[in-house]
């Protein structure tokens, strides 16, 4: 059974995203621990990429800060191995195909399993290209997370049927980043997903306020927040962890109101 399921057994899940090494790994460690302490159910750890084409300016900034400080893939694996001494909630990596491909897909995915990573989100790997990594994910028990977008329409069933871990439902068109309004008809998409799979579904992209989180949690099984958290790192740098902790608490409380 996928370890990721645990994240969805404590009411609606709250899933923060943090870029590894922004601005350094000790800050990432502090931020992750604060998030866990304050109710995060699963954490998405970003491995920085030079050209993150699915990200808006905020997360692009995090990638640049982390890479500037010389972070690399092996350092992140070592970091997760150490983090696993204290952190038991599911952890997934979010990065881009070339980071995995250049490391060697099998070596990357087996190391994920070895250090305690439960899943992998690759925004530039659609359903049609998942065979690039899926066989290794199966072999080593790492879930390759499927994304569904507002434009997926006739593709939802096909994607949902083969989904593992959880489904990442992209709330809106465009790239990651805070939005004032989310207008996609998410109810319809979620109900199509439900007709095809029992795998939980979390909504991400554009969510920052407790009210948005609550609305999204009403529709789905969990809420993913990236840019709003990265903004604390942008603003407070090495002192961001406490702020992230407080924010995670507020957001987890908000999603908990719609049990």
């Amino acid at each position: 059974m996928s370890n990721i399921k645990k994240a969805f057994q404590n009411g609606k899940a709250f899933i923060p995203f943090i870029t590894c090494g922004d601005p350094d790994l000790s800050t990432t460690e502090a931020a992750v621990k604060q998030a866990v302490k304050n109710g995060a159910d699963l954490i998405e750890l970003g491995i920085p990429f030079s050209d993150p084409t699915a990200e808006g300016p905020v997360i692009q900034g995090a990638n640049i800060r982390a890479l500037k400080n010389g972070i690399d893939t092996d350092m992140i694996f070592d970091f997760v191995r150490k983090l696993r001494e204290d952190v038991t909630i599911p952890l997934v990596f979010m990065t881009y195909a070339n980071v995995v491909f250049s490391y060697g897909a099998e070596k990357f995915i087996s190391t994920c399993a070895d250090v305690g990573i439960d899943g992998l989100i690759l925004p530039d790997i659609p359903f049609e290209e998942k065979e690039e990594f899926q066989p290794f994910c199966k072999k080593y028990g790492v879930d390759l997370i499927s994304l569904i977008a507002p434009t997926s329409s006739n593709r939802i069933g096909m994607i949902a049927k083969e989904a593992e871990g959880f489904i990442y439902l992209v709330s809106s068109l465009g790239v990651t980043g805070v939005r004032n309004e989310i207008n996609t008809d998410l109810e319809t998409i979620v109900s199509t997903i439900r007709e095809n799979t029992d795998v939980p579904c979390a909504i991400g992209f554009g969510i920052s306020t407790p009210e948005q989180a609550k609305n999204m949690a009403t529709v789905a099984d969990g809420v993913i927040v990236g840019s709003a958290i990265v903004k604390f790192l942008e603003k407070y740098g090495k002192n961001a962890a406490e702020h992230i902790g407080e924010y995670v608490r507020t957001m987890k409380d908000a999603v908990n109101t719609c049990m």
Partner: peptide
Amino acid sequence: MTNPKGRFGIHGGQYIPETLMNAV
């Protein structure tokens, strides 16, 4: 077998966000 669409030997393919799949 990887996606055979738009392949030139092992090269090519469609490594893009799901959001763009129906557009391509």
